[in-house]
Every structure is written in C-alpha cells, then in structure tokens.
Nucleic acid binder design. Structure first.
Length: 572
RNA sequence: GGUCCUGUGGUGCAGUUUGGAGUGCACGCCGCCCUGUCAAGGCGGAGGUCGCGGGUUCAAAUCCCGUCAGGACCGCCA
C-alpha cells in the first residue's frame, strides 16, 4: 500500500513518485485552492500539498500518491526532519474517517491519565509513547544480544505454577479439573531457573513476565518484565559482571552513554550514609552519625540507641510550614519527631536549642560541618528507624528529577541474610531462603546467631530505583538445612513447602548464582520517565484497573460454578 | 490499612483562600473567508450535572461531612 514511510523521505528522494499512508496530523487549509496536510506515521511527519479543496479532518487515515519535490527555499521548515521537501499529492484516498480525537495528538498537552488509558490506542500515536516503546524494544533486543554473546541460552518457564508461601501475594488461577485447587502466576521464575541449573542448562536467561499482587506504585505494576539470569559454576562477582555488561549495552543502545564500571558498596554503608538500600547517589545530603555525641545528653528525645542528622546547605531559609510538613511526614514514616536547627547569625536557632548544652551545640556544628545559613535535621531512635526516616527526608529535600544527572548505577552487596521476624518470632529471609550466607559469617550461623549474618545477595540500583536483585544460591544440603533451622522451619514443613526442590538438590547440584533486572524500570529511567506506565503499552492504574477494557470484571455464575467457586458478599 | 494532592464545556487551565448570575483564557469543534502554510490566519457560532450525594446558608464551583475516580507516598513488594 505504500512505497515509503513519511519520516524517511529526504532531499535525495526529490523527483520520486511515492505512495504514503498515515494519519492527518495537522492541516492548514487556504480556501478552495490549496491545503497543506501533515501526514504522520511511526517514522515521522511529512507535508503533503493538495491543490483544491480537501475535506480532511484530524486523524483521518489517508493513502497519498504524489511526487516528492524540494520546497521553495523560503518555505523550508528546519524544525522537521522532512522540512526541506514536500509531497505534491496527486491522489488522496481516505482509508478511514475519524471523529475528533478525545485529546490532542501532540507533545505539549499533559492529558489526564485515565483519559489516555481509556483511549490508549490514540495515546500510543503520540511521539512520547512511540519513542518510549521503541526504546523499550531496544532494551530487550540489546540485552538479548548481550546475553547470547555471553553464552546464555533462553529457556521459557511456565506461567501456571504452584503457589509458594514465600514472598509476595500470588495471583491465582482456579483449576477447572480440580475444583478448589489453584495455580499461581509466577512472581518470578526463581524455582524454575534454579531447576534449569540442576538440569545442566549452565547459562540460562529469559525475558520473563512476573506477576505480584501487591499495591502499585510509580515503579510497580502487577505484571512486569525481568531479564532473568542464572548461571552455574560462577560466583557473585561473575554474575554482577555479566549483568553489568547487559545493562551497559542497553544503556548505550538507548542513550548513547557508555557505562564503564559500576561501583559497589555494602548494604551497611548504604544504610549508614544514605538511609536506604537503594541510594540515589546523584546528590549529597548524606546522613551524619551523631550517636556518640549525644551519648550522655540531658535531652530526653536524644537519649536513643541511634542519632543521625542531615545538613541542608542553605536550609535556614525553610519556612516554618515547610519544616512542620517535614516533621509530619517523618512521623508518618515512623519517627517520633524531627528535630530541626537553623544556623542563623552564628546562633543555633531551634525549638530544642534550650535543651542542648553549649558543648553539644558546638560539637554538633563541628561534626556536621554546619555553616551559616544551614539547616540541620536530626532523628533519634532505633538505628533502622533513624536510617529509614532520614533516608526518606533526604529524598524529600534533595532528590532531582529522574532524567537529571546522568545514570548512576550502583551495586549494593553484603545484604543481611535475615531481617525482622515473622508472626511466630522466627527470623525471615531478607532475600529468599536459598540465599548463600557469606562465608565469613558461616561460623555465626553455626552458633545459632541470626543477627549480623551477611549473605551473598546483591542489588543493582540506578538513580535511587532498585533495578534488580540476585544472589549466590545454596547448593549444599547441610547449609540449606541450617538455614531452615534458623528460619524455624521444621524438616517436615520444609519438605511440604519445597520438597521437590530439595529432592532435586540430591541429584548433583552445581554451585550457581543468578540475578533479575526489572526492564520496565530500566527503560523508564533511560528515557527519563518517572513512571513505568509510560514505557508500558497497556498499563493498569494504581488501583489495578484498566480503563480501556474495564478489567477486572465479575464473571457470570455459570463460569464460577464450572470452576467450583462462590463469591462472598463484600465484608462490611 | 494509613497520609497527602487532584477532579470546572471535547482538551489544558484560571476562578475556591475571603460564598453573591456558569465568569474568563488557550487549544479543539462547527460555519464562512483566505493560493505557501507549518502550533497557519481572519470573522462568526455551538458546547457546562463545576466528579457524585448530603448538609450549612437568603445564596455554594467556593464552606462542612460522606462517597467515587485518579495520582504521589508509608505499610506491603522473599
């Protein structure tokens, strides 16, 4: 139906007879004698000149036959790639008419997102999404190539799997043949990729769809894509090098930026300095350790296991309402309060100034390198609360837009093996129960310790977003048994929950390790989008609905009955 | 489960603080004019459940309560 794409034509094509197809992007009519039509397809826009009246409207689909000609020099449009030429339309066929679109197909209008999602097929015509989807395709094709070149083999794993009690809430699929039983949709191919290693696949990868029924965020959808990787006879560093080169290839493909080495810091350091296990290192405002300084303070609020602060250069200008807002948020995030101190006219100006001794004030200023005009923000509490809250305060105050400051990849290593406790008071795995403990901490595990044990788990972080995580897996049954014991999982229970996997490990398990990279997030950051919905063709809203198809929807009773299901009335 | 923000012709906004006639701006739409525009231009016109429900008031887009939808975040996400 067409000989060329609109945006591909150049001055070299002058004189050619072409046939183009596309949408009416914009029209400029000059009465019954002359009209200019900007014809748009995926490649771009070209001006079609029509002699005589043209009864065309926005978004009509046209097939245009005509000759490419150079524009008169005074009418060249430098802001268009095709601006030096135009097509003299000799025949214009309307392939489809269009009602006026529900919103403008341009880049200037910031349209309500529900409207965009309801008419996503129209939204997709806009260059923002066209470009984003193109970049997304570039990410997947380039990482595929990178993985293949490193000797990885793509293996597909099932979408209908057994539900496991670990991790996120599962999406479930009722079994028709076995009413009352359910498949789960995979949260990740974790088990299967490890089984691939048992199966001698050696180097596995997959661009895998993962599903988790947890509340959505700007960087979270129910379903998302991962570059999933597992390799045998490698250590964690090998895996990190493999992943580093894959994301570097993707970054260069999309942005042209070369990523050479990706620095590593330990989880401990990330928490101490940035109050986060996914630090955004594009800006300062690092946390300052102040616990010792207030060791014997008279001020009750600072008599806590941990005190840290952030120095905000120039922050003395913060208004009272801004500080109150920060305090409210800090409390919402779990702190008892947020202490603020302004350094004005060489004085420590603060509601709490009177509770601090002169010595405390001067050493605080020195410790935090406080200068005239600065604001000092302090939190005192348990170590984890202090880090968590100040980490969020830091982002609230200083975080730049996602597309500023380049691409700061960072490896976070030496995660703790356990974190928190479950409802029975047993420690929980911070990554998953098959994560290999750090070899230097194996002795602690022997002693029945759980606190302070590091694991061979690692995360990849980009500009403050967790891009993915992975670990060295346990391939020895004795160590696995120790972990289950530490987690309070009895042998019977372990057999029930992970029996098939434990069985598999009896038959010659190679040492292996793996990783998974969130491709929606990677793509979003590479194209400078704050929200992964902008790099997904058909995303869901924050409440998990799809305004286009109205999913989720009830199903009829006959269908329910066939599946052996009954819907309870909404609880009140 | 929680905190905060948003909802006004088809679209994007202003108006809400301090209640007084559906008032305004830009784009789009419809009609007419226009032979070199390119976010074309000129003239004219149509288009409104101010998300929804209730309350206060002589009077509510505006104040109060509730609710729905959307968004950001905390919890949650091995």
């Amino acid at each position: 139906m067409r000989s060329h794409r609109c945006g591909d034509l150049r001055v070299d094509d002058v004189g050619k007879e072409v046939m183009l197809c596309g949408w009416v992007d914009r029209r400029r009519e000059h009465g019954e004698h002359l009209a200019f039509i900007d014809l748009r397809d995926r490649s771009g826009v070209i001006q079609v000149v029509v002699q005589g009246a043209a009864d065309l409207r926005s978004e009509y689909v046209l097939q245009v036959t005509g000759k490419v000609r150079e524009r008169p020099s005074e009418t060249v449009n430098d802001s268009l790639d095709t601006g030096g030429i135009e097509v003299e339309g000799s025949e214009v066929i309307v392939l489809a008419e269009s009602e006026p679109p529900p919103f403008p197909i341009d880049d200037r209008t910031d349209v309500d997102e529900v409207l965009r999602l309801r008419h996503r097929y129209v939204d997709l015509r806009r260059s923002r999404l066209q470009n984003n989807l193109q970049s997304r395709a570039l990410v997947t094709s380039s990482v595929r190539k990178a993985m293949e070149e490193q000797g990885f083999m793509e293996v597909e794993t099932p979408m209908l799997v057994a539900s496991t009690p670990e991790g996120a809430r599962d999406f479930v699929v009722p079994s028709r043949k076995d009413p009352g039983s359910f498949y789960a949709l995979p949260q990740s191919p974790q088990i299967f990729k490890q089984l691939c290693m048992l199966g001698g696949v050696d180097r596995y990868y997959q661009i895998a769809r993962c599903l988790r029924d947890e509340d959505l965020r700007a960087d979270r959808q129910y379903e998302f894509m991962q570059l999933d990787i597992e390799a045998s006879f490698v250590n964690g560093e090998d895996i990190r090098n493999i992943v580093s080169s894959a994301v570097a290839v993707a970054t260069e493909a999309v942005t042209g930026e070369k990523i050479t080495t990706i620095p590593s810091i330990t989880w401990q350091e990330a928490m101490e300095r940035f109050g986060s296990d996914k630090p955004d290192v594009r800006f300062g405002l690092e946390l300052v350790e102040l616990t010792d300084l207030f060791k014997s303070t008279e001020f009750r609020a600072f008599q806590a296991p941990c005190v840290k602060g952030i120095r905000v250069p120039g922050g003395a200008e913060f208004s009272r309402s801004r500080l109150d807002e920060l305090t409210d948020k800090s409390q919402n995030w779990g702190a008892k309060g947020l202490a603020w101190i302004k350094i004005e006219n060489s004085e420590m100006v603060s509601p709490i100034a009177k509770f601090l001794s002169e010595e405390e004030k001067s050493s605080l200023k020195a410790e935090m390198s406080g200068e005239e005009g600065d604001l000092l923000l302090l939190v005192a509490d348990e170590w984890s609360t202090v880090c968590h809250v100040l980490g969020l305060v830091r982002l609230e105050i200083g975080r730049p837009p996602i597309n500023e400051g380049g691409f700061h990849f960072l490896w976070i290593i030496d995660f703790p093996l356990f974190e928190g406790t479950d409802e029975n008071g047993n420690p929980s795995s911070s990554h998953h129960p098959f994560t290999m403990p750090h070899k230097d901490d194996l002795a602690l595990l022997e002693d029945g310790e759980t606190e302070g044990i590091r694991s061979l788990a690692y995360d990849l972080v980009l500009n403050g977003w967790e891009l993915g995580s992975g670990s060295v897996r346990i391939h020895r049954q004795d160590i696995q048994q120790r972990i289950f014991t530490a987690l309070g999982i009895e042998p019977d229970e372990a057999r029930k929950r992970f029996g098939f996997l434990l069985d598999a490990f009896k038959f010659g398990a190679p040492p292996h390790a793996g990783f998974a990279v969130g491709l929606d997030r990677l793509t979003a950051i590479l194209v400078g989008e704050e929200n992964i919905r902008e790099v997904i063709a058909f995303p869901k809203t924050q409440s998990g609905s799809d305004p286009l198809t109205s999913a989720p929807l009830p199903i009829d009773d006959r269908h329910l009955k066939e599946l052996g299901l009954k819907v309870l009335p909404p609880s009140t």
